[in-house]
Amino acid sequence: MRFQAFALCMILGLVGLAVVTAAQEKDMETVSPALGLRAEGLIIARCSVCHSADLIAQQRLPRARWEATVEKMEHWGAEISNDEADLLVRYLSARYHPGAPDQLLPLDSELRKAEPLTQEPVAEGPLTGVAARGAGIFEHNCQACHGAMAIGGMGPKLVKTPILKQEDLFWETVLHGRGAMPAWGSVLSPQDIADIFAWLSTK
């Protein structure tokens, strides 16, 4: 009798694992390398404002738990669109599922180079920033650290600072990070960065 119960538990466990694996594979099929980078950028931009990305990487949750977690983030004020929330759930479910190994390798650096983050054509020549648009992009992405109107907060103030006279350094910092500031190249498009720079330059 005990053996039959044990065998039944094993069968149910294997069926459950198969369902989880199938769901994980379905999620992974919808997350290309470029979208994976986009999701990682969102984690840095939206989630690590309150807690470290390492804390997220330690989790091993089924899809339903990730859905509840992202929904809770939105309830607590995380500024993410519906499309961004859907991408986060798919990516987190595919990468940090219960069957994932304890130590995960970072996304392959070659894949980062192989596929563009967007399908937009690369602009020819220098970009012209639109200050009015930059104000909204800054509020949505940068204000949490650099404060309202870029007057400073957890991060340094940006208005009337020397970096605005060194546009190349500004771009390098935003794209690749500097010190405690993470890289935003996988979150912001070149036009977004140009718009933010244009807006900051008017302050």
Rank of each mutant, 00 (worst) to 15 (best):
A68C: 07
E120Q: 11
E110P: 06
A100C: 06
A135W: 05
G153M: 13
V122W: 03
I80N: 01
L37P: 00
A23K: 15
A148D: 13
A148V: 12
E139F: 15
T30I: 00
C142V: 11
A39N: 02
A131W: 10
L35C: 00
A94S: 13
T69C: 03
L92I: 00
D27H: 08
A148I: 11
H51Q: 07
E115K: 07
V89E: 14
E79Y: 12
Y91L: 01
P101S: 06
M28N: 15
S93P: 08
L88W: 06
Y96K: 08
A45Q: 08
G136H: 12
F138E: 11
R112F: 05
D27F: 01
R133F: 07
D54S: 09
A34Q: 04
P121W: 06
Q119W: 13
L37Y: 00
C142S: 02
G134E: 05
P33D: 02
G41M: 02
L37G: 01
S93N: 04
A39D: 09
Q143H: 10
E79D: 15
L104P: 11
G136C: 06
T30Q: 11
A135R: 14
T30G: 08
P33Y: 02
V89W: 10
Y91C: 11
A45W: 01
A132G: 03
A78N: 04
T118I: 09
W76M: 15
C142D: 10
L55Y: 07
Q143S: 15
A23G: 12
R63H: 13
Q119N: 15
M154Y: 06
Y91A: 09
A150N: 00
Y91V: 08
L61W: 15
R38L: 00
V31H: 09
H97D: 03
E29R: 09
P101F: 07
P101Y: 04
A34D: 00
I137W: 01
G129K: 02
E120H: 06
T69V: 10
Q119P: 09
A123R: 10
T30F: 05
A34W: 06
T30V: 02
Q24T: 01
E74F: 03
A144W: 14
P126Q: 14
